[in-house]
C-alpha cells in the first residue's frame, strides 16, 4: 500500500510539473511553432525588412499592454486607450504646429493622455463606478475631443525634428521597438518586485481583503489608470511621429487588441494574476498573425474576423485554464 502511494505521489508531481510548464509556456510554444511555420511557408516573412515592420507594428500594442496588464491584474478594464492614442496624437500635432517646440508637443501629448487616465481613475475609485462603463463612456468623450482638437482632419506636422521619435534607428533597430522593450523591462520589475505590483494583484484577487489589510485601494486604482493614460498618450505621440501627422480617427479597435494580447498570454480577466512574459508572447502572436495576413494579402474584412476569432480563443483558453485549476 505504501509503495503504491509513493509512486502515485511521484506521478502526481510529474504531471503537475508538465502541467505547470504547459500553463506558463503553452502560448510561447504555440508562438514558436507559428513563427517557424510562417517562416517556412509565407514568402518574405523571414526577411529583415519584414521583421522590422513586425516589430514596429507590435510595439504600439506592446507599450500599452504593459499598463493594461496592471489594469487587468487589478480586476478592471480600460476600453478608452484607443481614443487616448488618437487624442494625444492630435494634441501633440497641434502643439508642435502652433509652437514649433517638439519637446513641448511630446510632453503635452503625454499629459493629455495622463489627464484622461487620471479622470478615469478618479471616477472608478472615488465614485465607485464600474471600470467597463466608465472607460466606455470616456472613450466616446475622448474621441470627440480628438475630432474637436484636430477640426476633424488629419493634422500633418511640419517639424521634421519630431519624426525621429517614431522613425529613427538605434543600432539599426527602430526607436519604438527599443521603447517597448524598455517598457517591458520596467513593468516586469514593477509587477514582480514592488509593493505596487503585489498590491495590484491583491486588489484583483480580493478587493475587500486588500482594503482590510490596509492597502490604499483607491490610490492604487488611480495610479493604475493614470499610468495607463500616460502610456496610451505616449503611444499616441509615437504613432503621430511615425505617421508624421496626428490623426483623429486612428487606432479603432486598438483597446481590444491590447486586451486580447494580454489574455492570450494568460492574464486572467477576473484579476489577480499577471504573467508579464505571457503578455509579451500574446502581443507577439497577435502581431505576427496580423503581419502574416498582410503578407498573404488577406483582405482587411477577413482580418477582422480572424482578430475576433483570436480574441474568442483567448477568452476560451482563460476559461479552460480556470476550470482546470479548480478540478
Amino acid at each position: 500500500m505504501k509503495g503504491v502511494n509513493k509512486t502515485m505521489i511521484n506521478v502526481g508531481a510529474l504531471t503537475a510539473k508538465s502541467k505547470r510548464l504547459w500553463d506558463t509556456s503553452s502560448m510561447f510554444i504555440i508562438f514558436i511553432i507559428l513563427f517557424i511555420m510562417l517562416s517556412l511557408f509565407v514568402p518574405y516573412f523571414l526577411t529583415v525588412r519584414n521583421m522590422i515592420g513586425l516589430g514596429l507594428s507590435v510595439s504600439m500594442v506592446g507599450m500599452v499592454a504593459c499598463t493594461m496588464l496592471f489594469c487587468l491584474a487589478s480586476g478592471d478594464f480600460d476600453l478608452s486607450v484607443e481614443n487616448i492614442v488618437a487624442f494625444s496624437g492630435v494634441t501633440a500635432a497641434a502643439v508642435i504646429n502652433s509652437t514649433g517646440n517638439v519637446t513641448l508637443g511630446i510632453i503635452i501629448g503625454m499629459i493629455a493622455g495622463g489627464m484622461i487616465g487620471l479622470f478615469n481613475g478618479l471616477i472608478i475609485a472615488k465614485a465607485g463606478i464600474n471600470a467597463l462603463i466608465t472607460t466606455l463612456a470616456m472613450s466616446q468623450i475622448v474621441r470627440g475631443l480628438a475630432f474637436i482638437v484636430s477640426g476633424g482632419q488629419a493634422q500633418s506636422i511640419g517639424n521634421a525634428g519630431f519624426f525621429g521619435l517614431g522613425n529613427g534607428l538605434f543600432l539599426g533597430v527602430p526607436n519604438p521597438i527599443w521603447i517597448t522593450a524598455i517598457c517591458f523591462v520596467i513593468f516586469t520589475v514593477l509587477i514582480k518586485s514592488t509593493t505596487y505590483g503585489k498590491n495590484t494583484l491583491a486588489i484583483g484577487g480580493n478587493q475587500e481583503a486588500a482594503r482590510l489589510a490596509g492597502i490604499h485601494v483607491d490610490r492604487i486604482k488611480i495610479i493604475i489608470f493614470t499610468m495607463q493614460g500616460f502610456m496610451a498618450g505616449f503611444a499616441g505621440v509615437v504613432l503621430a511621429s511615425r505617421m508624421t501627422s496626428g490623426q483623429p480617427n486612428t487606432s479603432q479597435g486598438f483597446s481590444l487588441d491590447v486586451i486580447s494580447a494580454c489574455v492570450l498570454g494568460g492574464v486572467s480577466l477576473s484579476g489577480g494574476v499577471a504573467p508579464i512574459m505571457g503578455a509579451i508572447v500574446g502581443v507577439l502572436i497577435m502581431g505576427t498573425v496580423q503581419n502574416a495576413m498582410n503578407l498573404m494579402n488577406i483582405p482587411t474584412f477577413y482580418q477582422y474576423i480572424v482578430r475576433g476569432a483570436i480574441l474568442l480563443m483567448a477568452v476560451m483558453i482563460d476559461q479552460f485554464k480556470q476550470s482546470n485549476k479548480k478540478a
Binding site: L201, A202, G205, E208, L212, G272
Partner: peptide, 9 residues
C-alpha cells in the same frame, strides 16, 4: 472567504 484570503495568490 470574503474579507480574509486572496484566493488565487
Amino acid at each position: 472567504k470574503n474579507e480574509g484570503i486572496i484566493p488565487i495568490r
